[in-house]
């Protein structure tokens, strides 16, 4: 079975000559559909860099990036935007909601860019908010919501586009541990009940424990991979 996501000898370097930094130094990685992967590792080890490549936000300097068996490393900006819009959902450490924009409008955003008319996208956005337990908060601004609630709006936004993969870079990094666990239960349920593949970066062992597979980065290389569990 072809993996959903595959990195082959991927490198990513910043700068040139003397000042060159190799954020990724030849990474091989395969993630199959339906997995829940946690990525850990020290600061600066290349976790976010890898996530950006998987998330079609960035391109590898060399090596191959395959999604559903298709090579994507050479796509241009707009082609990558189409992949993001159709298959990917993002959850960021800093939530990244549009300020002064209601929860519902934030969740609608990916659907607007997909060109889905209001009559069809409103129910989708509402049900995504309901899935993360925010029914009744549709009209709230991010400023009127707690951190946990904001992160749930962000998850609803990621869900609204009906993604195959949710990419979460330190989703609980700005939350206290109680809210953090709530978010993890939500992600776990989405993975279990809806079959959405989840790739998540975290610094916390107990957060990583929600995943079925653990990958550890050190200095731009994968130094440990528990592999897919039988369940996956």
């Amino acid at each position: 079975m072809t993996p959903l996501i595959e990195l082959r000898a991927v490198t990513r370097s910043y700068g040139k000559g003397e000042a060159e930094v190799r954020a990724l130094d030849g990474v091989d990685l395969a993630i199959r559909a339906g997995e829940f992967v946690a990525i850990m590792g020290p600061s600066g080890s290349g976790k976010s860099t890898a996530m950006n490549i998987i998330g079609c936000l960035d391109r590898p300097s060399s090596g191959k990036f395959l999604f559903k068996g298709a090579e994507l490393q050479a796509l241009d900006n707009d082609q990558r935007a189409l992949i993001r819009r159709n298959y990917l959902g993002f959850v960021f450490q800093g939530f990244n909601l549009l300020p002064r924009t209601t929860a519902l409008e934030n969740v609608e955003l990916p659907l607007i860019y997909k060109g889905i008319p209001p009559a069809r996208r409103l129910p989708v956005a509402r049900s995504a908010l309901a899935k993360v337990g925010l029914q009744g908060r549709e009209g709230h601004d991010p400023a009127q919501l707690s951190g946990g609630q904001q992160q749930r709006v962000a998850i609803a936004r990621a869900l609204a586009g009906n993604p195959s993969v949710i990419l979460a870079d330190e989703p609980t990094g700005n939350l206290d541990s109680h809210r953090g666990h709530e978010i993890m239960q939500l992600l776990q349920a989405l993975n279990r009940d809806e079959g959405i593949t989840i790739v998540m970066v975290t610094h916390e062992e107990d957060i990583a424990a929600y995943a079925n597979r653990l990958i550890v980065f050190t200095d731009g290389l994968i130094t440990r991979d528990t592999g897919a569990k039988a369940a996956a």
Binding site: G55, D78, A81, R85, L97, L109, P110
Partner: peptide, 16 residues
């Protein structure tokens, strides 16, 4: 800029 980044991340094309 950040707002534009968010829009791009959720799938806006440069034309949009």
């Amino acid at each position: 800029t950040r707002e534009i980044g968010i829009r791009l991340a959720v799938g806006a094309t440069s034309v949009q």
